[in-house]
Design a binder for these strands. Sequence first.
DNA 1: AGCATAAACGCAAGCGCTTGCACTGTCAAT
DNA 2: ATTGACAGTGCAAGCGCTTGCGTTTATGCT
Lengths: 341, 341
Amino acid sequence: MAITMKEVAEEAGVATSTVSRTIQNRSSISNSTKEKVRKAMEKLGYVPNFSAQSLASRQTRTIGVILPPFSQPEKASDPFFLEILRASSKVCSEREYTVAIASGDTTKELLESVRLMYLRKRIDGFLLLYSKLGDPVSRYLHDHNVPYVLIGCPVEFENEVSYVDNDNVLAGKMAAHFLIEKGHRKIGFVGFDQQEKVHQDRYTGYQVAMKQANLPTTSFYILEQANEYLQFQEYLRTEKPSALIAVDDLFALRLMQVVSVSNFKIPEDISLLSFNNSLLATFAHPFLTTIDIHAMELGRQATLQLLTKLSGDQEPIIKRTIPHELIQRETVNEHHQTSTR
Amino acid sequence: MAITMKEVAEEAGVATSTVSRTIQNRSSISNSTKEKVRKAMEKLGYVPNFSAQSLASRQTRTIGVILPPFSQPEKASDPFFLEILRASSKVCSEREYTVAIASGDTTKELLESVRLMYLRKRIDGFLLLYSKLGDPVSRYLHDHNVPYVLIGCPVEFENEVSYVDNDNVLAGKMAAHFLIEKGHRKIGFVGFDQQEKVHQDRYTGYQVAMKQANLPTTSFYILEQANEYLQFQEYLRTEKPSALIAVDDLFALRLMQVVSVSNFKIPEDISLLSFNNSLLATFAHPFLTTIDIHAMELGRQATLQLLTKLSGDQEPIIKRTIPHELIQRETVNEHHQTSTR
DNA sequence: AGCATAAACGCAAGCGCTTGCACTGTCAAT
DNA sequence: ATTGACAGTGCAAGCGCTTGCGTTTATGCT
């Protein structure tokens, strides 16, 4: 069997309580004793037993990361989630925490899984990676006062949730601004899900910027089915936008293909700007110019926030905004006006 | 405080041991008593405390999923991992297990994280999602007899590891076969990492099939840097292959773009076949014809295998092969020969 | 020298569950 | 009726750690 605290205590000639307090580095143990105990631990190769610790201390040092229900598979393919997961996991292991994952095919399954994890005391708190109106999971967390922080923008209980997010409106604005500065006038915004807050926000920002620049055409397209593709191609042909803003990188990849098929070249004919700077951005050809939302940082901050929340000493609600940053690569060109102005 | 077993026992008028055995559904408890106990649990809303269970039973009912170290970021963007994670998580929650994630930026960090999880008895066993020659993590697992199963093809301790994988050689063969049947003669294979076992295997299969069909040109290209792109475009122009096999979907997306830029149309000029059928496949335009490797099933089977291994009663080593399946979508056309035959 | 005070540590009672073993009652076989 | 065999429960000793409180020893003050 593995080494226990008792054996360490004997080896060091102290009581188990002293060993325990040494591990927790309490000030009530003198440095000399701590040293003695640490030597003994070292010598015996002692590693504290996690279950025993949680049982006695009533905390699990484990957080649950809640992935969006699989019913929206497009989301599931987004590298975004893995990045968050990794960032969170990193912060956790630095602080001797563990991350467990909560996922489910349906909202119902997910809720059940979250509920059980919490009730069985497997988990101290959650990181919620999505936010949807009327979502029973966030409702549960909220109603039962489960500690959690949201990554993304809350659509319910806005004033009672801790969250970290980007300023997507600002990002959308920045995107449009950038293209306008580059000389573009006909700029289209392309997304695929009007329900999504992120899409809405980025679109709003885009609108604002266009309006400020007093730019005539504002366009908004959604692609999902075949006929929407055709409409979009039609738009490309008739309106001849010189630049496109795609709502995220993954979607931009698709868009690039559609544009190519319509015999336009990126960036020569059409510039393309997207969001996220996911790992896919340099996987595209040409490389995507994109607005980095610092997913890692989102994950990091959210996790930190959750951990301090769990440690007790903290103000109830914190809202944090992670800055974004434009990464210039290959898909945006200067546009030299022909007709306008 | 939460309800404990003791209270349930009182409510049901039995001893706590009886409650415990009821939960475990042991045959030594009569059905009538079980019923009584279950009613009491129901009434009080009892949920067993996980830490206490693990402490007493010496098992955590938690498995760790080991993600590849982040030093290979291309891998990290592959939706493959999330799919596995979800599949595993699903199996786990059905069996009241939990999945924790182990990841790290470097191999060293990863190893440390895995080691601690195991030593602190936070975890019963692992699912390893990558396999690399000389990898210290798999060496650790192996040397310390940690229960684990690998998803993918082992490159070390081949005969001492349980794993589940596809038959990638066969899949490669199938890919080539399919294209040959469709009338293609000039078929190129395109991958991006010769070190990867998966790439090698699929390539081998492709070679075999081509050789069998007595087909002249066998081509193999790698793209990573700009000049390799150019070489590839050169290849397209001079050799004019009628079909391409891409080593996976993500890579196929990139390829599609390169092909478009070279003014070839998919599938009219060049057919494209890839592997994985990841969620990206229908995110491409046109939709990818691809060989489904049933990632979910890989995750499922691997997890099941791990769980039975953990439950004790089982033969030491199991190797399982998950079948693949060709999914026809839009990127492969019939090829009508012009010169040959 | 005498006493309050604080610093450093040990005692022991849990935390909520599992499980080997002992115990009771029932019933068929002798 | 006596015994043996079992099915069905309860007892109580842990599992390995934390922590409130009590005890000891060193320190400061008058």
